[in-house]
């Protein structure tokens, strides 16, 4: 059951087409990652969904709501650079956001208490936001996006600006949030998408290039791969050229002393390689059988 249907969404700035004929749906209760390199149109897309930017053409429909409805009531949004009134305290900002979103004063206070507890800002709630760290601001941003229990939570690069600790905290929070709301978040870091999302949408130059559930994509595009790392510099250089001609090897690269072979029949190729290595006493440090990762796919999709 899809919560939101996006059809033929376009946005042009002058002659530049930022988003081009984007169509996709978001399943209710899912966590969707919008992936793409910088400048692919992720932020523009999210801003249109959040109602901050009028699309040039195309439609955004919420399931069960008339086309003219003010969607902002059902959406929680955290922009890329969350900005706050630095002179307010954390809880004041939450109360203000909640009441603007239509909560009563009492509800806003209650939700604030609840959410600040969950994002770990209960101690800091009376301090001025101007004194918060980047990670604290991001957690406050998450809390304010959730204050009115939105149907859809839109997060623009929620972890990109954070250090590893803050990143882990926010990802953990996302896992919590997804239990009660549908999430759409953008990122250019694939690892984050893999960590929390079920569905991915990959866009490039404003166009959708790949979409589906994470598992389907992984299965459909997974290929066996063999890594061989040399022990002596340049030891594998000549061998790499030779191996490229082996049967069932579809792709070979030699970089930083590591040969990477994308293969079709891993067992057969493995046998051949190991035999050669043993026979010619090729100095290797590592021989590994693996699968192509989503990252490989992402890089391929994005750069092709």
């Amino acid at each position: 059951m899809s919560l939101v249907e996006i059809k033929d969404l376009n946005k042009t700035y002058g002659s530049k087409q930022a988003v081009h004929r984007l169509s996709f749906g978001i399943r209710e209760g899912s966590c969707v990652a919008l992936l793409g390199p910088n400048g692919a149109g992720k932020t523009t897309t999210l801003q249109m969904l959040a109602g901050l930017l009028a699309p040039t053409s195309g439609s955004i429909r919420f399931n069960g709501l008339p086309a003219q409805a003010d969607l902002r009531r059902y959406i929680g949004y955290l922009p890329q650079q969350g900005a706050y009134y630095n002179w307010m305290s954390g809880s004041e900002f939450m109360h203000y956001s909640g009441q603007l979103a239509g909560l009563s004063k009492k509800e806003a206070v209650q939700r604030t208490n609840d959410l600040l507890d969950r994002v770990g800002l209960q101690e800091a709630r009376k301090r001025k936001i101007g004194g918060y760290s980047g990670g604290m601001k991001q957690r406050l941003g998450l809390a304010q996006a959730l204050i009115h229990q939105p149907k859809l939570v839109i997060l623009d690069e929620p972890v990109s600006a954070l250090d590893p600790v803050g990143r882990r905290e926010v990802l953990e929070l996302l896992k919590e949030i997804r239990k009660e709301a549908t999430i759409l978040f953008s990122t250019h870091v694939l690892h984050d998408a893999e960590a929390v999302s079920d569905d991915v949408l990959m866009i490039r130059d404003g166009e959708l290039v790949l979409s589906g559930t994470l598992r389907d994509i992984r299965n459909a595009h997974r290929q066996p791969v063999i890594y061989i790392e040399e022990d002596v510099p340049q030891a594998l250089q000549t061998w790499a050229i030779e191996w490229e001609r082996l049967a069932h090897v579809t792709e070979l690269s030699y970089q930083d002393g590591i040969v990477k072979l994308v293969v079709e029949q891993p067992d057969e190729v493995k046998q051949q390689l190991l035999q050669q290595i043993a026979q010619h006493r090729i100095p290797i440090r590592r021989f590994e059988l693996a699968q192509t990762t989503l990252e490989d796919l992402f890089l391929k999709v994005v750069s092709s």
Partner: peptide
């Protein structure tokens, strides 16, 4: 410029 206007105007305002 600070972006806080965006935080307010995503509310039904």
């Amino acid at each position: 410029n600070s972006g806080v206007a965006g935080m307010v105007l995503v509310r039904p305002v």
